[in-house]
């Protein structure tokens, strides 16, 4: 066992550097998308697809950290499975929770007219004062 781990290490000499570069590039990509998103209208298809792209990039980053930094990729396959398989629970976890959140919003918008009126009423803009206050500190 000793030998193989040593061999792996030397073959992965550049791995750390490469993964660092990949992570940096992915973060920069995310930021670029984030900046692009600012000009998109709320709820537009473009914005939603950008968000999905950002989430995919996030998962890619997570993959690189777990696989290389945490060294999971070089562990025995069964160990990888015992960690990855339970995480698939998140799929249903997310779908059910967010789906029900969405449904709660729709229910209230349909049956609670007052609530809907209040939550769609625009506030008179006093934002400037806030950011000025913030800048002072």
């Amino acid at each position: 066992m000793e030998q193989t781990t040593q061999a792996e290490h030397s073959s992965n000499k550049h791995e750390i550097r490469n993964v660092t570069i990949v992570l940096t590039v992915l973060t920069l990509l995310e930021l670029t998308l984030g900046f692009m998103m600012m000009r998109m209208a709320d709820g537009s298809t473009a914005k939603i697809s950008t968000k999905i792209a950002i989430i995919i990039l996030m998962l890619a980053k997570a993959y690189y950290i777990v696989a290389y930094f945490m060294h999971l990729k070089h562990e025995i396959k069964n160990l990888i499975m015992t960690i990855v398989v339970p995480l698939t629970l998140f799929i249903w976890f997310i779908i059910a929770f967010l789906g029900d959140g969405e449904s709660y919003k729709n229910l209230r918008n349909t049956y609670d007219a007052h609530k809907k009126a209040v939550s769609t009423q625009k506030v008179e803009i006093k934002k400037e004062t806030h950011s000025e206050e913030g800048a002072k500190h």
């Binding site: 339970p86 995480l87 998140f90 959140g101 969405e102 919003k105 918008n109």
Partner: peptide, 27 residues
């Protein structure tokens, strides 16, 4: 590893709770 997996669920639950509230808000 398994502790981190369970901690993933702690953070996952907090972030999903955040998502749920965000999905149930109009804006």
């Amino acid at each position: 590893w398994y502790f981190l997996m369970s901690d993933t669920f702690t953070f996952g639950a907090l972030l999903i709770a955040y998502g749920t509230i965000r999905f149930s808000s109009n804006s």
